[in-house]
Write a protein that binds this DNA or RNA. Sequence first.
DNA 1: CAGTGGTCTAGACCACCCT
DNA 2: GGGTGGTCTAGACCACTGC
Lengths: 238, 238
Amino acid sequence: MSANIYWTIYNDYAEKIQNGDIPAGAKIPSESELADSYGTSRETVRKALGLLSQNGYIHKVKGKGSFVLDLGKMKFPITGLISFKEMSERLGRKSRTLVYKTERVPASRVISAHLDLNEGTTVWEVIRSREIEGERVILDKDYFVPERVGTLTPEIAARSIYDYLENTLNLSISYAKKEISVEPATPEDRALLDLNNLSHVVVVRNYVYLEDTTLFQYTESRHRLDKFRFVDFARRAH
Amino acid sequence: MSANIYWTIYNDYAEKIQNGDIPAGAKIPSESELADSYGTSRETVRKALGLLSQNGYIHKVKGKGSFVLDLGKMKFPITGLISFKEMSERLGRKSRTLVYKTERVPASRVISAHLDLNEGTTVWEVIRSREIEGERVILDKDYFVPERVGTLTPEIAARSIYDYLENTLNLSISYAKKEISVEPATPEDRALLDLNNLSHVVVVRNYVYLEDTTLFQYTESRHRLDKFRFVDFARRAH
DNA sequence: CAGTGGTCTAGACCACCCT
DNA sequence: GGGTGGTCTAGACCACTGC
């Protein structure tokens, strides 16, 4: 996005690796070579390579060089704050969003606790299900602090709320906490999802914070058991 | 671990935050102040603060400063390559490990595929269940490439295999990929876990790589649905 | 305006690897 | 010994927030 040099280098190589232009196991140019070829300093190159390493694109070995990993392919993310729309587009699957509710409602005890508000405070409630290849397999229940989001409409909810928040309202999402657990299906789950008699659902609770560290969204994503998948890449602490 | 300056700063503040010595919302000293007080340069301080930020301890705001987040408490990890033993100790729960099997066996078709070996190659198979507060809720099935691990014994398996690998064999684990899904319980799950009639288990497949990028361990961690929990902290891409 | 974090530079020394 | 990545320095300029 920015005109940062390290960001340019990062994207150049992330793309080359994802496209397979540089095969898994291959060595990328040394830090000094990259510094020369991009006309920058080694520390700046190192910033880019650090990002590539963190995100599972490369692996750096002292004394030898940096090598391409073969994990770049299935970067299947619930990880990393990616939206349903981005995800289904990336996978090229036929998908559809069904909007059940887009309303301002008083927060229930549970919801107000999740959003750290007083019970009864007005919040936006958006309830949608996600249909993939003809089956409703995800139920998304979103709650927003109303001062931040202005007015939501079913049309916005059907497209991408994140698009609207980031590009129209210029809110900048900063970080989020996710909790994954498995819980018994509720009557609502049975009504709005095609559960096929499965007794439980995977629940992903997502707390989204803005740049000023205020919590402004709580989302409960309820997945049919057999359609849930989560991939995580982790480097050893040190 | 190392005598690195940035590592020292990171640990100092990670500890202060975890202990509550610096409360959530408080501002930590500016980068220049930290550089002075640690007798180092600003870039080195920035490296430490970058780590604190990534791990959810602080949040940096341009023009204002760095502020403590309140997520440091329940850093409940399957995230980050932490072992069962470390985890249960951290939580102070009564737990026990039951070792069912510690043997060299020819790899099945499935296992050889996971470890990228030829079918029938000899691998170490370790099967253990984890009992927490009297119930067996996790079934761990580990497979190791034998050239790397030498000899495993039930005694080692009962303590911590990672301890043995890292401190005795001096293998250095580098990175890992995890996949989480939910699958029907197998007869083995029913035999070795206290499933309470639950029909499915959460399966965490873990692929562990060494510094030289070779895959050397595949682990299948099978959790009872109601005892599974996963927490993830993520910063927005940019 | 002074103070903050974000980016970048042009060096330096070290530890490690390979030949 | 020459090449590599890991750490660190002492500056610089910018963009942003606050007063």
